[in-house]
């Protein structure tokens, strides 16, 4: 793939677009330690620096195209679940940070999200990034940071959905 080709061209012209006419939601780059861009940034050219600026480093070059049915919170949970087995477990920020982030994300996905969860996720991700021993821990929270950057409303909606029935009762 020549650099400079837009992501839109890759997905729609070369890849043939999304099956069954569904809408595209995001394109995720670089595997479980990478990041994603939303549909609105699809005209970004394939370029190391430009994508890195958007929080989606190309990494090994993999591209994961996600359609409108996918929950971005669930995708993030999936990546962290994968990383919790990939971590060697030697240093505390990586081993425990991933464990706690995964727990919070699983709760949100299971409809047990709480107010303050997003802020806690952000705080944990800062610590794992700053204090981990190796690059796995330092970048483990990258998909989380990038989905929070572009799809924060999805996290909020998931938590809000949980909150509303109780509030109605009150």
């Amino acid at each position: 793939m020549p650099f400079g080709t837009t992501i839109r061209e890759i997905v729609y012209e070369i890849g043939g677009g999304i099956p069954k006419g569904k809408k595209l939601k995001a394109v995720h780059f670089g595997g479980p330690m990478g990041g994603c861009i939303p549909e609105s940034l699809l005209d970004t050219p394939l370029d190391f620096d430009k994508l890195a600026k958007l929080g989606a480093s190309i990494g090994a070059g993999s591209m994961l195209v996600l359609d409108e049915d996918i929950s971005m919170v669930d995708v993030t949970r999936y990546f962290l679940d994968f990383l919790s087995n990939e971590s060697c477990g030697k240093c505390v920020p990586c081993r425990e940070g991933i464990r706690q982030m995964l727990r919070i994300l699983t709760n949100i996905c299971d409809g047990k999200g709480k107010e303050g969860d997003i802020e806690l996720l952000e705080e944990i991700s800062e610590v794992t990034e700053a204090a981990s021993l190796c690059a796995l821990g330092k970048t483990a929270a990258d998909p989380l940071r990038s989905t929070l950057r572009y799809f924060r409303d999805e996290y909020e909606a998931n938590i809000e959905k949980v909150k509303s029935p109780e509030e109605k009762r009150e």
Partner: peptide, 9 residues
């Protein structure tokens, strides 16, 4: 010794 990796260590 240590057994397992990641969160299961």
């Amino acid at each position: 010794g240590f057994v397992n990796c990641g969160a299961r260590r």
